[in-house]
């Protein structure tokens, strides 16, 4: 039994050759390579980027019915199926990379994730993280909360709902159309990922005001989705290899982002005339108010979401206290 070989398939919600999401250190293809190496070829996983086997967002169903064994994506893509899935990618004003992993690995997060997915016959592991993302690109500076009124912005997901409550006109656009739309002013602002990925789309040629804080995505976890029957069929050593490889990718992808974003931001500011700014404090405070309200509404509407929400927030409250006397003073004194 222990020498049985497994040939699996993994689909991915992202396009071929996307750095971080498909290729490069700590990426899903890197995960497949690591697993093959560690298992000495006993578990080989053939990787298919979005569109190669199925369209980008069809991976959940494919894993669910066992046609493919694994899928790489972000859990919040499944918010239409399971509203609580949002919490396993990122929560606006939620936890950063350290906090998110602390919750997932040691604060009961992964148990809740398993509990949410078990009825659908799948399980998930964190397999990567972009770290903190940027607020996005704006054609005009944001000086007060009123500047959001009637602003046309490409912003998907929960953050879109928060902006909409502040008068932003939310526009849904596929990645490829962000640039032409922003460049011509069809939209006034767009959110994508962070300096390295955004520069790849050329967004610096379309808008010059680049804002942070990553209030909407303080971190962003990549999800490795696994068919449960397939998972149970693995011997323990291969299970351990999958778990360890996913953990390694989680760390390696994040450190890769940290290193590359630093270099990309420097390039954007120094060579492309980009103005990188922090959103005004009162704007952030208002965004937080609305976010709290919208998260509470979501929790009230769905018992499964409420359970995850309450657990997440309880963990966060404690973690915030700790980081208030650990990380925060450290960062503050560094900046000062």
């Amino acid at each position: 039994r222990a020498q049985e070989a497994f040939a699996w398939k993994m689909t991915n919600a992202y396009s071929p050759s996307s750095p971080f999401y498909v290729e490069g250190p700590g990426s899903p293809t890197d995960f497949c390579k690591k697993v093959a190496a560690m298992s000495d070829g006993r578990l080989t996983i053939q990787h298919f980027a979005a569109g190669e086997l199925i369209p980008a967002l069809e991976g959940f169903d494919a894993v669910r019915d066992g046609t493919v064994e694994m899928n790489a994506a972000n859990a919040y893509f499944w918010a239409g199926k399971l509203p609580a899935a949002q919490y396993f990618t990122t929560v606006p004003f939620g936890l950063n990379f350290q906090g998110m992993n602390a919750w997932l690995y040691h604060g009961g997060g992964m148990e809740l994730w398993d509990e949410l997915y078990a009825p659908l016959g799948v399980k998930a592991l964190p397999m990567g993280n972009t770290g903190v993302q940027m607020t996005g690109w704006f054609r005009k500076p944001i000086e007060s909360i009123d500047d959001f009124k009637d602003l046309k912005m490409r912003i998907p997901g929960l953050a879109g709902k928060v902006y909409a409550a502040l008068g932003v006109d939310v526009k849904l656009l596929p990645g490829g159309e962000i640039f032409p739309a922003l460049e011509r002013g069809v939209i006034d602002a767009a959110e994508f990922v962070g300096p390295y990925q955004d520069r790849r789309l050329g967004l610096q040629n379309a808008a010059k005001y680049y804002y942070t804080t990553g209030w909407h995505e303080p971190s962003n976890a990549t999800e490795l989705l696994i068919n449960k029957v397939a998972w149970e069929s693995l011997p323990d050593d291969l299970k351990a290899i999958v778990q360890v490889a996913a953990m390694a990718c989680n760390l390696e992808s994040h450190t890769w982002c940290e290193a590359n974003n630093a270099a990309a931001l420097k390039d954007l500011v120094e060579n492309h005339g980009v103005q990188a700014n922090v959103l005004p404090a009162d704007v952030v405070a208002r965004l937080k108010e609305v976010t709290d309200q919208i998260l509470a509404e979501g929790a009230a509407a769905d018992p499964a979401t409420k359970k995850v929400h309450d657990a997440f927030m309880a963990f966060k409250a404690e973690h915030d206290q700790w980081s208030a006397i650990s990380e925060r003073p450290y960062h503050n004194s560094l900046a000062g």
Binding site: L57, A79, G80, K81, G160, A164, L172
Partner: peptide, 10 residues
């Protein structure tokens, strides 16, 4: 699973 849009307001 009563699937809807993943985007709020969808």
């Amino acid at each position: 699973i009563n699937e809807g849009s993943p985007d709020p307001g969808g």
